[in-house]
């Protein structure tokens, strides 16, 4: 292990930075950012980039987009750290910014997809207009992982934003109800209710999707 580290300069830097960032308190990070201290900014990115990318990915289902959102989140943190309410933890605030950025991205993307669908409906390359529905796949294994993934992503995306956020933070991020209440700025009862409704809606949508594929088969 030691030999491996000493042989790889990049690893040493990353290891040192990880160590440095883990030791820093929220207060030290905030003070450093306010002073435009470059190593502190690197430590902030090192400490929180995984959390931000993963959360964004659960919303947008694409790693490139998740990294772009992570950049946006980091820039907002650097610019608005002066307005940060110190009663919450930095992690909670970063979660909140990430969720908002991700939801904004999904909203914009939905509009873009609608326009693309509209255009492709009328301007098909072969000149035929009409049925925008995809032809059923000839492959018998309709429920292969990719298709399952698509079904799951579609079902989660179709949830109302509050339910989707609560569900992702609970089921994917595995955060406690208390943490979710802080991030979403809601009461415990509201979060419980949102999660309950999210599960009900999700299972309903999934069952419909399963039946549709089953009928096509």
């Amino acid at each position: 292990m030691q030999e491996c580290i000493t042989n790889d300069r990049h690893n040493i830097i990353i290891l040192n930075l990880s160590f440095y960032s883990e030791l820093m308190t929220d207060q030290e990070l905030i003070t450093g950012i306010l002073n435009h201290d470059k190593p502190v900014i690197q430590a902030l990115v090192n400490k929180y980039h995984k959390q931000v990318i993963k959360t964004a990915f659960y919303f947008v289902h694409d790693m490139d987009d998740a990294e772009d959102i992570a950049q946006d989140v980091c820039i907002e943190i650097l610019e608005k750290v002066g307005h940060f309410n110190r009663t919450a933890t930095l992690s909670t605030w970063i979660y909140r910014v990430t969720v908002n950025k991700s939801l904004n991205f999904v909203r914009k993307n939905k509009r873009k997809q609608l326009v693309q669908q509209f255009e492709s409906f009328f301007y098909k390359k072969d000149g035929k207009s009409g049925n925008a529905m995809a032809e059923p796949s000839s492959d018998d294994n309709l429920f292969e992982n990719n298709e399952r993934k698509q079904i799951l992503d579609t079902a989660i995306n179709s949830l109302p934003e509050n339910q989707k956020t609560a569900f992702i933070l609970s089921k994917y991020e595995e955060l406690s109800y208390k943490e979710i209440t802080e991030i979403m700025n809601l009461s415990l009862a509201s979060v419980e209710s949102l999660l309950q409704r999210a599960k009900q809606n999700l299972q309903k949508k999934l069952i419909v999707q399963f039946s549709e594929y089953s009928n096509r088969k």
Binding site: Q42, K50, K54, F57, A66, A70, Q71, K149, K171, Y172
Partner: peptide, 22 residues
């Protein structure tokens, strides 16, 4: 599948790319 998606990890050098982007 949800369990598998939960264990997703950022790609290598994502941190460097984010810092460069910033």
């Amino acid at each position: 599948l949800m369990e598998e998606q939960r264990s997703v990890e950022p790609r290598p050098f994502a941190e460097t790319r984010i810092l460069q982007g910033i």
